[in-house]
Design a protein around this nucleic acid. Sequence first.
DNA 1: ATAAATCGTGTTAAATTTACACAATCTATT
DNA 2: AATAGATTGTGTAAATTTAACACGATTTAT
Lengths: 233, 233
Amino acid sequence: MLQKYTHETRILLAIDCIIFGFDGDELKLLLIKRNFEPEKGKWSLMGGFLNESEDLEEGAKRVLNELTGLENVYMEQLQAFGEITRDPVERTVSVCFFALINIHAHDSELSRSMNGYWFNFKEKPDLIFDHNKMVNLALSQLRYKAALHPLGFELLPEKFTIPQLQRLYEAIYDMRLDRRNFSRKIISTGLLIDTGEKNEHSATKKAVLYQLDAEKYKNNFNDFHNFISDFKW
Amino acid sequence: MLQKYTHETRILLAIDCIIFGFDGDELKLLLIKRNFEPEKGKWSLMGGFLNESEDLEEGAKRVLNELTGLENVYMEQLQAFGEITRDPVERTVSVCFFALINIHAHDSELSRSMNGYWFNFKEKPDLIFDHNKMVNLALSQLRYKAALHPLGFELLPEKFTIPQLQRLYEAIYDMRLDRRNFSRKIISTGLLIDTGEKNEHSATKKAVLYQLDAEKYKNNFNDFHNFISDFKW
DNA sequence: ATAAATCGTGTTAAATTTACACAATCTATT
DNA sequence: AATAGATTGTGTAAATTTAACACGATTTAT
């Protein structure tokens, strides 16, 4: 057996998840009311500690699942946060993940757990520790990636209309987009398949329901697009 | 004093730095020959462990400085790597940073320490642990950011010519760029100030030396550009 | 039948990107 | 001093992409 690194400090590793959702209208953020000290009763991201037996991605999935029941969710690492005093209890470095979920598709899991509360992103409360900073960075990252890669679909049901997708993008960037230009841009990616069905919920003209071409989506996910060319960064 | 988190596992936190350089011709990577077990004698990124008394950025700067003597270097966090068996000695999570340095401007520090070896990026050797993966991700990230933000300047001397900048971009993306279109694109950012001087080292027509408009650079760093519109991602 | 709202497609001008031409500058050589 | 060889700076036109706006079609409620 190999020698251990004997003189080094071991540190607590937390995992925090910034969970974005979309309800068809507003960009949402899933938060939890902290039920232990310190900061008991204040709003917080979904978080936990990393176990010895799991890698970071596994830990993030576990934390998310334990707190919300959610599974099979799009998730990627944001970055680590390591300010010395970020947790007043003890030095803790947190690795942050951000997740995207389609709220309606996961209604049942979420209502079962009753641990999470969806806030309109714009009306989110003040959060504990450095969680505000994490959320801000996550929003930048979401905007960054969603402008360049076909990421937005993760927040929508399997079948969706182009106007729904547009409302999602408008929520992410907090701006209005031209309906006609947006539609053309999305169609031209070739990622969408016309299902032949229409959105029966509409009270006016029913929009065509599309679904992702799963194969193309996977293969071309890292291609560059320019979905939001006029967003002011 | 607050209660500590008593039941959680504390984990070793490493820091690894992917250090890119440019010598005027090729993209370079700074590596170190590991002088302790395991994997003694193999090539490795610049790394160390996080101390209790420093945050992540401080730790990264310290590690870089201890191993190379370098200071005041552009650095940003890449992400954390946490595979359970990534270090065979003991469970270790590594937070990676990538740094950009102008090789010639830092010649003296580097030669003093004699710890680092610059490889042509294309000829880098196999690295220990998951360091190959880290380097690959860092290159993606460098390409990503350098295409959109005026990041490349960090790798050049204070005064540089547009052809020099172009050679840098060609090295980063491993592709040829059209001289005339590149020049126009760079000039149109408004970030460059004509120093009135010329590159006296040239054996043919001497190119104009520019320097960054430091003020504009800072304020507009996050603006979106499109320096490499035809790179195939 | 008609009004009100939304969806889908079309058109044109402006802006950006691409591709390629040519003149100017500098050193080394004749 | 003239010239060749290499590199730099600027120009220009075609192709592509983006932006701005018009109009007809569909659906439900009145």
